[in-house]
Design a protein around this nucleic acid. Sequence first.
DNA 1: TATCAAGTGGGAAAAAGTGGGAAACAGGTG
DNA 2: CACCTGTTTCCCACTTTTTCCCACTTGATA
Lengths: 147, 147
Amino acid sequence: MLIGEYTHTIDSKNRMSLPVKFRKVLGKIVIITPGLDNCLFVFTLAEWSKVSKKLGSGDEELSFLKSDQRTFNRNMFGQAVDVEVDSIGRILIPDFLKELADLKNTGAIIGVQDRLEIWNDKVWQEYKKMAGKQAESLAEKLGGQKE
Amino acid sequence: MLIGEYTHTIDSKNRMSLPVKFRKVLGKIVIITPGLDNCLFVFTLAEWSKVSKKLGSGDEELSFLKSDQRTFNRNMFGQAVDVEVDSIGRILIPDFLKELADLKNTGAIIGVQDRLEIWNDKVWQEYKKMAGKQAESLAEKLGGQKE
DNA sequence: TATCAAGTGGGAAAAAGTGGGAAACAGGTG
DNA sequence: CACCTGTTTCCCACTTTTTCCCACTTGATA
């Protein structure tokens, strides 16, 4: 399971090294996608195939016939990339994804169960504060939903 | 799976090189059709036969009986072309398709699961912004539908 | 303090993308 | 039917980007 928080640099060639702790779990190829709340998601291949199956077309109909589905798929797939982890554990973050998450020379790498998230580190710091404050009330809410 | 976003030039001879990542999947011949939302669709032969099966007489009814379907299919099939990928991975985009998608010297190539889309790059940039804003609500909506 | 592991940076080789010339082809015209 | 003209196709060459590899730095550890 992927847990913890790290801050790593993104060098001039858009390379970012993955924390050693995560490398085994992630494997040789990962998928980077636009995330929600202004970050990037990093999935293992296995995770990604689950996600894409669930959110993608569905085999029955043509996914491009429905406008909502087109929009969602273009966002989801069009801005995703599969990236090979290099021999010393770095990934390459394409420019268009860097821009999307507002990444400059550094980024925060967050382990969230079975995916990573990459955040602009300042944004992450803010988000953390906010999330911390809401934790108790959210716990109640989520707890309630399941019953 | 076709994912990711690239910007390539369309040269004076209407040639556009396909991103290396896509070439294996696409094979030697592709089908280019007018797309939806002012772009072009590019299908593999395999994918195209699925599409045409589903749009065509397909499973249940004769497609030409419905006026809407006739119109849609005339547009889609009538303006489709099959194009051979040249020895160094380029395709030829006919003038009438260029005009349809408002393509000039460059175009954005987007991988959307099992098809490519070719966009006027400025239009794509705009579309992306819009799609990004909608992403979270669409995620909720589509996520809900599947359960 | 020497050593090792993790992370960072940079140079050289390889690959991808782009552009253009010449051959091949088609189509029209004298 | 030969000829001319314009288009398409094929091939080669250049430029830029990416990839691969090696080396340095830092910080923790024995």
